[in-house]
Write a protein that binds this DNA or RNA. Structure first.
Lengths: 393, 393
DNA sequence: CTATTGCTTAATCAGTTTTACTATTCTAGG
DNA sequence: CCTAGAATAGTAAAACTGATTAAGCAATAG
């Protein structure tokens, strides 16, 4: 419970930070709106807005009209008060996609720059690449040297925030201990790192099917591996060492020793999907191609989807039993390509395996979910930093 | 982030509630201690203590001495300011234990009364039984009619706090929708309901091996079923409908159709433990007896423990992959009886199945963990209610 | 022109802190 | 053993900060 104590200074800081928090939400607010939201009196709201405006965090963005009396001023957070950068790094592997995708947005979330790079991390130090990419973003958006407050990094691995170390990562050079503080020092900004699947879940929470859920589990079916993100009321469960959701390594029960030990990755990882597709005579040289062509002709690929769904339901059943999520989201390239056909098959398979109370859905994000989520995470970090700064300045 | 806003009234309430929160912790505090803890000035501390004392929430419990100057007064929460009652209801099933165990404690956590009943719920309405038990507790402790602020109920089922309904419960009469509000009305107190395994985890967090963990998963191996509780930094994950941790229903992967569908309950539930024991020629007519006699002669029962541990590791592997807990606690009668022998076997089995980073431990609570946890939960509820009451009176 | 609304100014109020002071108790020195 | 001095506990008064209430002025729709 609240153990904050203090004097009138604390009060002022709290009121300013409460107002700023409301102003950071999209859509402008008049003094009257803020009055209702914060339950503060008019003079106090004026005073708070005066200070926030002086600090450059808030600006007048318009005027009300159409009602009697003077036109009320509409305030909103100043878009240029701070910027957040997002960098998504991935193993190129089977797909031929760029290995670095990055974007920059202002305080209102508007994307100001977006670039793609094909960095060869075998011959480039991650720190140098990061610095170069962030500088390029700044150039493209035309933003001053110190404009970026936070750089958020997304990687296909688990991030141990306590040890500040990235683990289980395939991209060369990123597992080096001490890398993250080095990058932070080189960039001169705050830095956040998170698992790509977690970041996709953040995007799903803010713009996708997870928007109104009180919590959900997101199963990521990627070209290579698979992953899980757990959202509880908007916050992600990361586990003791950032390893929560690393279900690819989950061993499966073998009733007797005649079956070799297999894990979930062997069942629904990219290689397994590719092999399953070939068994069913479906064309394609990557998992994504296989599922895409199967989804194009669901009639012929019914058997394929059925078996794939059965395998997916093995993992989902464990997740549902442990977490009881109200919603399960299927995401990642394979799930996106499978679409409604895959969804129907998985729903049926899970219902067969266990009494199902969770809703299952497919991601509704068509753009690069990981990048969008990384941006969202970076933006949240910037906003919280601003609010905290106001609160305990 | 903090969106609280208000005027000096809020400040006073916050300061009072912060002080009360500190005073509710065990051990008395002087004004000087509170000064350091809250960073408030001496006059303010005096004022806050004056108000809290007037409200009867705080009393002087002693005087400092041995240092120069006047003897400082030592303040602490008044034990008799409020009481919490805990009632643990269980299905008698194979064990012959009482079906209702209840206790009452004061605000400092001292147990003032404890009773056991063997209520036949086939012929008694839960509401009537609850009212009777709580009245008996009050009598035994000699506490006035309105002294009990909160009654906490523990049941072997999942509690959906949104629907105020108990699900998956074996005890007759408790699944009836609307029961919980009825009980609350009949008792005239606040009421809390939770799953027995969750409550055992609360006890483990406050008095057991989970004390210093930043999070843990508790696997409950009971006489009948099994369950899981997930503690994240002191708060429990309950899932969308209170069904998180209902891993008994978790279906297991069957690589081909020759194996019938089985779930985890079939593998490590009480009946399975009993059967496994009999297969290995271990004496005993209940799961607890089997494990107890096996643990008495670990040399002869090595094979039994090995196979049991293999089965347990199936469930644990899924839990660890999904949650990445820093600690896994084995609890419940079977685990308690298995002790260090079982622990060693399970640790070995899990290590074989998956790269293990989580520590595994056996519960360190010898008393009725569920009842203790229920008391703890009730006490926390009372304390938070008092703090909140002060805060926004 | 009037009613209504937006916003500011002045006066008041509540709560905390600073400063000053008194009272109490231990320690040290005679 | 007694007493002076130092350190600490707690209170009282005054000053300070920030919020609210009340009053008033300006702007605008109808």
């Amino acid at each position: 419970m609240t153990r904050l104590a203090g004097s009138s200074k604390l009060l002022r800081a709290m009121n300013a930070s409460a107002a700023l928090a409301h102003l950071l939400e999209p859509g402008g607010l008049t003094r009257a709106d803020l009055r209702k939201l914060t339950e503060l009196s008019t003079p106090t709201i004026s005073e708070v807005l005066r200070r926030l405006t002086e600090a450059g965090l808030v600006t007048v963005v318009g005027h009300n009209s159409g009602r009697p009396g003077p036109n009320a001023e509409i305030y909103a957070a100043n878009p240029d008060a701070a910027y957040a950068a997002a960098v998504s790094v991935r193993d190129i592997g089977a797909s031929r996609a760029p290995s670095v995708v990055a974007a920059l947005c202002d305080l209102t979330g508007t994307v100001r720059a977006r670039i793609e790079r094909n960095v060869d991390f075998l011959h480039t130090d991650p720190k140098d690449a990061l610095v170069e990419v962030v500088a390029a973003l700044r150039d493209e958006a035309g933003i001053p040297e110190d404009g970026i407050h936070h750089v958020q990094l997304g990687v296909a691995g688990s991030y141990d925030s306590r040890a500040e170390t990235i683990r289980h990562v395939d991209v060369h050079g990123f597992a080096r201990p001490g890398l993250v503080p080095e990058i932070a020092a080189a960039l001169g900004t705050r830095i956040g790192v998170d698992n790509d699947v977690n970041l996709a879940a953040i995007a799903e929470r803010r713009r996708g099917v997870g928007r109104d859920a009180d919590g959900f589990a997101l199963l990521w079916l990627g070209q290579e591996g698979l992953g899980l993100a757990i959202d509880i009321g908007g916050t992600l469960m990361r586990g003791a060492r950032g390893g929560a959701g690393e279900i690819g390594y989950m061993p499966l029960y073998a009733p007797d020793s005649t079956h070799r030990k297999i894990d979930l990755q062997d069942l629904v990882g990219g290689a397994a999907v590719l092999a399953l597709g070939q068994d069913h005579g479906i064309t394609g040289t990557t998992p994504l191609e296989v599922v895409t062509s199967a989804a194009a002709d669901p009639g012929a690929a019914g058997e394929f989807f059925g078996q794939l769904a059965d395998r997916i339901s093995v993992g989902l059943a464990a997740v549902i039993a442990v977490l009881d999520p109200s919603l399960v989201v299927l995401a990642g390239p394979v799930a996106h390509a499978g679409g409604e056909t895959l969804l129907a098959a998985v729903t049926a398979a899970v219902r067969r395996a266990a009494p199902l109370e969770s809703t299952i859905a497919v991601t509704s994000i068509d753009d690069d979910a990981v990048l969008l989520g990384t941006l969202d995470a970076g933006l949240s970090a910037v906003r919280e930093a601003l609010i905290a700064e106001i609160r305990d300045n």
